[in-house]
Structure formats: structure tokens, C-alpha cells
């Protein structure tokens, strides 16, 4: 029935005539920023044009897999190039295992529309650097911080600088969390989603404060290792008040997972 085989087809078909929405938005974008900048954009003129389209760079996700500090700067530069290409259209950025205050400063200066920022194990980013950047990111709705050193004061400043914040994830291996959780309750009353992963909390007071002071909260997830159980009444209250409530004790030190 078929008059052509896949082999014949590839002889005659010009794949560069495919609509940009497939080649760019659906295929090349999925390769990720590093692969696009290092490889895909060099394939031909058409792909280079597609790869320069700011629409390709609204979402940027870059992970540095090998934590070898001598190549950190390469990832930092690649990330800047990716942000540069977004021409201010960036709405969502995740970086992992690299990044400095300088990079964060660059992102914040170029990306006034940013609504989601995710920093995972960016050990060189300081609370001060983060806060300086967040001053310019007033549209931020989602913030995820893993293994970034965050003090109580930092959280208060974040709450002040990001009045639209709806979703906050904090993951560290600090021993005690109570202060931070209180600060979140005090300074982020608009939160809808809060996820806390860490070592332990001394008391349940922080969780009580979150319940009282964040009336819009729809989901609350707490994962602790070496932690007591929650007070029974408090756990019941959480389940009643919050659509999605998860409390889990892992027993495995975070970071070894």
C-alpha cells in the first residue's frame, strides 16, 4: 500500500522545512540549554535561527553533573548566554550544582518577568546575593532553595521582596528549623504551597504559626529525618485545614538520599 519507505522519505524530505513550533518548541528546546548552546545551534543556519528565538529560552534548566570547580565557570557563562538569549522573556530558571552571586545578579537584571527560581545545591550563592537578586524579581511566585544557606533574616527579606510568592520549597541539612519556619509564617502570608525538607525541628510551634498565618495554604509537605512525631492534634488540624498535607520522617540523613 505505501509507496515510500522511511528510507526513501529521508532522501527526499527537507526536514528544515518543518514548522518551527515542532523543531524548535517541541524538539530542540527539549535538548536543554547546554546541549543547544554547545551543539544544536551549530548544526546549520536554520537551527541557529531557531535557537536564537527568545521563545526558546523562557524556561532554562541547567545542571552541572560533575561538581568539579574548575568547570563551574563554564556553566556560569553558558547560563548567562542562555539568559541573554531570552531577551527578558525568561519566566522559569533552575540551576543545580553551580552558580555564584554574580550569576544571580545577572539573571535578576535581565529577567523582570521571572516567576520561578530554583537553586539546587548552589553552594557559592549567599543569602545576601539571593536577597539582592530578589529585590528585582518582584514577580516571583515560586522559589525553591536546596542546600542554600538561608538565615532567619534572609527569609524575612525574601517575604518582603516577593509579595506574590505562592510556592516556597526549602531544603537544607540545618539541624534546627524553628526560626526559619516562624519567619516564613510571619513574612509570607500569601503562600499556597510550602515544602520543607530538612533535619529536624525542636517544637511544633513553627507549623502552628504556618497554619495560623498562611490562610491560603493548599499544600504543606514536611519531610524530616531524626524528627519527633507531630503532636496528634496538630496533625489532625493540618489534615482538616490543608487540602494536601504530607508529613514524613525519613530516618535517612538528607544528602545521602
Amino acid at each position: 500500500m505505501a509507496s515510500t519507505s522511511a528510507g526513501d522519505r529521508s532522501e527526499t524530505r527537507n526536514w528544515l522545512e518543518m514548522p518551527d513550533e515542532i523543531m524548535g518548541g517541541m524538539i530542540l528546546q527539549r535538548l536543554g540549554a547546554v546541549e543547544i548552546l554547545n551543539n544544536a545551534q551549530k548544526v546549520c543556519t536554520t537551527w541557529r535561527r531557531i535557537c536564537k528565538d527568545p521563545a526558546m529560552w523562557k524556561v532554562i534548566k541547567i545542571s552541572h553533573y560533575f561538581h568539579a570547580s574548575d568547570s563551574d565557570f563554564v556553566f556560569e557563562k553558558l547560563c548567562k548566554q542562555a539568559v541573554h538569549r531570552s531577551c527578558g522573556e525568561l519566566i522559569d530558571i533552575s540551576i543545580k550544582h553551580f552558580g555564584t552571586d554574580d550569576l544571580l545578579d545577572y539573571i535578576s537584571r535581565c529577567s523582570s518577568k521571572l516567576s520561578r527560581l530554583c537553586l539546587k545545591a548552589c553552594y557559592d550563592i549567599t543569602g545576601c546575593g539571593l536577597n539582592n537578586a530578589l529585590k528585582r524579581l518582584s514577580h516571583l511566585e515560586t522559589l525553591e532553595l536546596s542546600y542554600t544557606s538561608i538565615l532567619v533574616e534572609d527569609i524575612e527579606v525574601i517575604g518582603h521582596n516577593c509579595p506574590l510568592l505562592k510556592s516556597f520549597t526549602l531544603k537544607t541539612n540545618f539541624m534546627y528549623y524553628d526560626g526559619q519556619v516562624h519567619a516564613i509564617a510571619n513574612s509570607m502570608p500569601t503562600l499556597r504551597h510550602f515544602k520543607l525538607v530538612g533535619s529536624t525541628m525542636d517544637t511544633d510551634d513553627g507549623i502552628r504559626a504556618i497554619l495560623n498565618d498562611c490562610p491560603h495554604l493548599e499544600s504543606l509537605e514536611i519531610r524530616m529525618c531524626f524528627c519527633r512525631c507531630l503532636d496528634e492534634n496538630l496533625e489532625k488540624l493540618c489534615r482538616e485545614r490543608i487540602k494536601e498535607f504530607k508529613f514524613k520522617r525519613d530516618g535517612i540523613p538528607i544528602g545521602l538520599q
Binding site: S10, N14, L28, L31, N39, K42, V43, C44, T45
Partner: peptide, 24 residues
């Protein structure tokens, strides 16, 4: 397609899609 070409070299991508390097 993205999965398949992800680990390709430049030349392999060009070969798979019969794209010529037309960069000036």
C-alpha cells in the same frame, strides 16, 4: 526525536536529518 539526537555529535545530527552545514 529529542531523546535520540541528544547524544549525537554535530555530524551525526546532520547525517540523520540530511542537513547540510550551511554556516557561513
Amino acid at each position: 526525536v529529542a531523546d535520540l539526537i541528544k547524544d549525537f555529535t554535530l555530524e551525526e545530527v546532520r547525517e540523520a536529518l540530511r542537513i547540510e552545514n550551511d554556516r557561513t
